[in-house]
Design a protein around this nucleic acid. Structure first.
Lengths: 173, 173
DNA sequence: AGTATCATGTAAGACGTTACATGATTAC
DNA sequence: GTAATCATGTAACGTCTTACATGATACT
């Protein structure tokens, strides 16, 4: 039921099409929520049918942007206030690091270096995103909270990967 | 296909039953991987049928511990070396913080305080876990990598939540 | 004019959760 | 000896991914 809340969160901040949402799931939001287009489009239709969204008359190219309705805002508020967050996660980087003792130290370092590069690149992108916020908008003030969580998390991952590479150097053959 | 790799990772480190695994998914590993018992037990059976695991003769109470086979170790190594990690995640804490502008600043702070408490408690548990490692064992050396990732991540979340609470204080009504 | 990719969608199957069931063991 | 919870499991259902399809718009 939380894909629906993710979509509602994004469209509450500003109208968006299914395509726009797909781009964000591939980009900044990849560490927050993700879903494939084949899941997004039908869900948007259902939300429209349920009266949570309103269709706007076509954006650039053939896009269909949706806007949140009062009913949609109500559902979003209710979700925030009456349920608590699920903290279970899946993190393949960390899962793999638990298994690294079954490969050679050199192979382990190779994996860690790849991870380090990946997360450094994402950190750069997220910092750029933060610079583009307009903090006079309430939605952007909340987005700052989210982006800052991502930045601190990525900084932690980068620090970790650097430490892990050194640590693995010291492993006995 | 990664539930299988998560199970293989755990059982490679030391033999475990489905019940043991369930406890860990509820505890330390909650931020790494999670699965319900109803998914774990049948998967273990399938892995046994596929020759990746061997059944040991019953542990405490009626538990059935499994041990990894050579074939299982081979699959684990192949997964680590020939595929790359999926970095997409779902993080409900951050998702909710993107939506916080739709509730009152007081309600937003309430949410953030709850999150702060939760993550502080988990951080404490994870540090305790780190103290119990036996670093003469290769599997525990890899577990240290994983735990340290969790600790640094939780420290970042705690720092973030403290900052976010103060930030929301300064939001205009 | 022809190729790339944009934007949306459908259908099948894999994966994950919820609800429920059952015998076995420990605790009172 | 009754209650709690341990340990495993099955079946139905919901969510997510993969494979494929289609017309529309921009690019060269």
């Amino acid at each position: 039921m939380s894909l629906r809340m993710a979509l509602l969160t994004m469209i509450a901040a500003a109208p968006r099409s299914g395509y726009d949402i797909g781009q964000e799931f591939d980009g900044v939001l990849k560490f927050v929520w993700h879903a494939k287009p084949t899941q997004v489009y039908p869900e948007l239709k259902r939300m429209h049918a349920d009266g949570l969204l309103r269709e706007l008359d076509s954006g650039p190219r053939g896009r269909t942007p949706y806007e949140i309705t009062e009913k949609g805002l109500g559902e979003l508020r209710e979700w925030l206030l009456t349920s608590s967050a699920d903290h279970s996660q899946r993190n393949e980087t960390v899962l793999r690091s638990f298994a690294l003792w079954v490969v050679s130290p050199g192979e382990a370092r190779g994996f860690l270096r790849e991870e380090l590069e990946y997360h450094r690149a994402r950190l750069k992108g997220m910092r750029a995103m933060k610079g583009r916020l307009d903090l006079s908008r309430p939605a952007d003030r909340a987005a700052l909270l989210g982006l800052q969580a991502g930045i601190l998390r990525l900084e932690a991952v980068v620090t970790w990967a650097e430490w892990a590479i050194e640590t693995v150097e010291a492993w006995p053959r």
